[in-house]
């Protein structure tokens, strides 16, 4: 399979990339790791007049995991995040999610920002950034960066809050407090995409009372979402078996029209999200698997 012809440019700085994006308009597509965009071009599901390769902009690849928030350049690869001992120590949910995307070859190319901006409804990163209430930083033609809450970012099927001419440049993740995290997913066995995936952040102390709950769900609806009903059912409550089971039943609350395809019906996806939601909640709460 060979893509239709396009032009190619490889800017060396974010400013150069933004200028090229402004000048090129609609037909200019940013190319991050290319693990979604190149297949789209090859299958001719989409086209580009010009690709803007973001892979040669060093400032976009940086990972700073020593402070709070953790700061990830949008072009940090999944593998770089997976392999970072500092990320593992500060935010194990990010390490876990990174390590479960696709396969190692894909993780060596694919990037955090590329995945978020592409906004595949079954991608893994959205669940994590929703659970962690991350902040996504975009840059447009002006010098001023715009911060977008992860929970405001996903607007519909493969549609985001990024405006034309804007680039996602950075993801900021608040360091979770004491407690536990988990990401649980059922993989589509060929692609590794989530048939249902649930990311959980629970903050609690020795009394096991939940101070904060964050739950992100992917693979189930037309866009990844935060399971607000689950978070509400857990916050301020003691994290015991019954509370977690009751909360897990709410993982798909409000999902009217679940995704359905040859891999899994909508009904089955809802079921998997509830089951794996409960497993993720139990793991994050430090309970043995049911």
């Amino acid at each position: 399979m060979i893509p239709a012809p396009f032009d190619y440019a490889a800017p060396r700085t974010i400013d150069q990339a933004l200028a090229a994006l402004a000048e090129g308009g609609e037909g200019t597509k940013p190319l991050a790791g290319g693990q979604s965009l190149i297949p789209v071009l090859k299958l001719r599901l989409g086209s580009a007049e010009r690709l803007l390769d973001l892979g040669r902009i060093p400032e976009l690849r940086a990972i700073r995991a020593d402070g709070d928030p953790l700061v990830f350049g949008a072009a940090a690869t999944h593998a770089a995040i997976e392999d970072s001992a500092a990320v593992r120590a500060a935010c194990p949910l990010f390490s876990e999610v990174a390590g479960r995307i696709g396969d190692r070859q894909i993780r060596n190319r694919g990037t955090l920002g590329g995945s978020l901006a592409h906004a595949d409804p079954a991608a893994d990163w959205p669940a994590a950034v929703l659970a962690l209430e991350a902040v996504l930083v975009a840059r447009g033609p002006g010098k001023v960066a715009r911060s977008i809450a992860a929970r405001e970012f996903f607007r519909g099927l493969m549609s985001t809050a990024l405006a034309p001419g804007e680039l996602l440049v950075e993801v900021r993740v608040r360091r979770p407090g004491a407690g536990g995290t988990a990401y649980q997913k059922v993989r589509q066995s060929a692609s590794g995409f989530a048939i249902a995936g649930v990311a959980v952040v629970l903050e609690y102390g020795a009394d096991r009372v939940c101070k904060r709950a964050g739950v992100g769900v992917t693979g189930v609806a037309d866009r990844p979402y935060a399971a607000l009903a689950v978070e509400k059912a857990l916050t301020g409550r003691r994290l015991d078996e019954a509370t977690l089971a009751a909360a897990a039943a709410l993982v798909v609350e409000g999902v009217k029209d679940p995704l359905s395809d040859l891999h899994a019906s909508g009904e089955y996806r809802l079921h998997l999200a509830r089951v794996h939601g409960e497993r993720a909640l139990r793991r994050a709460a430090g309970l043995a698997p049911a």
Binding site: G34, P39, K42, L43, Q105, R109
Partner: peptide
Amino acid sequence: ETTLCGACTVLLDGVPVKACTVL
């Protein structure tokens, strides 16, 4: 040719990638 099978794996700057999904 769809980034699944890995038959086209090569090392690019030392790390394995699927050469069907790299320009």
